[in-house]
Design a protein around this nucleic acid. Structure first.
Lengths: 218, 218
DNA sequence: TATTATTTTTAGACGAATCTAATTTATATA
DNA sequence: TATATAAATTAGATTCGTCTAAAAATAATA
């Protein structure tokens, strides 16, 4: 497997995991900042290897085999992210790019030892679940902070927007996976939220921001 | 810089560091298990980038710039080797292959943090010195165990043969960088050595083995 | 020094991954 | 249903890294 092939599989997995239908050539091209022509080429290569089911002009689905490979790459990516934040003290908005490179170093033994060393973490620094060796993946919470009723105590469990800008925004607010807080108020006009942390501090969150934040009940 | 370019630079550095003359196409091809034709191609690319001085039919020398790049790769390689042995508990004969991959993840920030985390190690698990950020490299001892007079107390400081087979051989004998011992006897017939460790245990070493072991005086 | 042997380079080809531009197919609209 | 629009594919080119086989240059030997 080349790095390029792995990147395609990962992207197609991410696109296909949500809607369980077919992933279109253009969706892949968009996400990867490349051309549809390049995607078509790669799609063919990957179907040759039975990693994708491909019907011309109809997009692709992942095969069981392709999904396993994709989950392997995602596992490596997320474990390296944990290493980079927890051990090397990188900020959570800095680790993605580095993990994109490290994820392609493919030694099962290396990843297994890294996993052990990190204490078998179940989530990466952004709250995304880490697949286990066999490719099993716990489902992340799908509850949006923006949907919570006033008064509820919650724990931040993940984010939908993984951009550096959004992650730095959360950092500044003191928000990251594991942080507990209570929803105090929802503004009638713009649906912005006032939340209170366990230490008593409060902060505002726009509806736009709250829609990118996943929570579980405390 | 591609991984391939980095591998060529590293190899050429290793070949050229000993004899300070020119490195020949065939030497590079031999070391990298490739053809002279491929080497010629790459040599041209690297001289285009001013990393090598190249004269047709005369071999190459490294430029200052090329040497710096090579030392960067070597630094990354050796730091990852320390990480793999000291943190992930790999054996020293297993780390080379993995470090060959990790060395191409080129982020100065990553390497700087890794270096700090590891405590700024000055030598890798095989006793080879680790270049600093600026590319400075302390000279490794050049004293061969096979040349030592009987009675001398020494510390193993490195090896010339980095093959897995030789490293496992040393492992079995209890020999690795930092280990102290005394040369008790040299056999008149085959020049094999009898050595004694600080715990009193003794072992034999063939002349062939002793020629691959670098030491410094205790 | 002339010839032979060795080394190095060029010529030409290939696979992977990419691109632009042109063509084909499918979808949406009148 | 016929046509216009959008999407996907093919055709053809490019770069990187590699190869084999042939040609050129250097080194060794008679």
């Amino acid at each position: 497997m080349t790095s390029s092939e792995e990147n395609y599989l990962k992207t197609i997995y991410h696109l296909g995991a949500m809607n369980s239908g077919s992933v279109l050539t253009s969706q892949i091209a968009d996400r990867m900042n490349t051309t549809s022509a390049s995607v078509t080429d790669m799609i063919k290569r990957l179907s040759e290897k039975n990693l994708l089911d491909y019907e011309r002009y109809r997009g692709v689905k992942m095969t069981r085999k392709g999904e396993k490979m994709a989950l392997g790459v995602i596992r490596r990516h997320r474990l390296w992210e944990v290493f980079l934040t927890d051990i090397l003290n990188f900020k959570w908005d800095e680790v993605h790019v580095l993990a994109e490179e490290l994820e392609h170093v493919s030694s099962d033994e290396l990843i297994s030892r890294l996993d052990t060393y990190l204490g078998h973490p179940r989530f990466d620094p952004h709250g995304d679940p880490i697949p286990d060796q066999s490719g099993k993946l716990v489902q992340a919470s799908g509850i949006l902070l923006s949907e919570m009723e006033v008064g509820s105590g919650v724990i931040l469990s993940g984010v939908n927007d993984h951009t550096s800008a959004f992650l730095r925004f959360l950092e500044k607010k003191g928000l990251k996976p594991g942080v507990k807080f209570t929803v105090l108020e929802r503004d009638e006009f713009d649906s912005s939220l006032l939340i209170r942390f366990t230490d008593g501090n409060t902060t505002f969150l726009s509806h736009q921001a709250a829609q990118q934040i996943l929570i579980r009940h405390d």
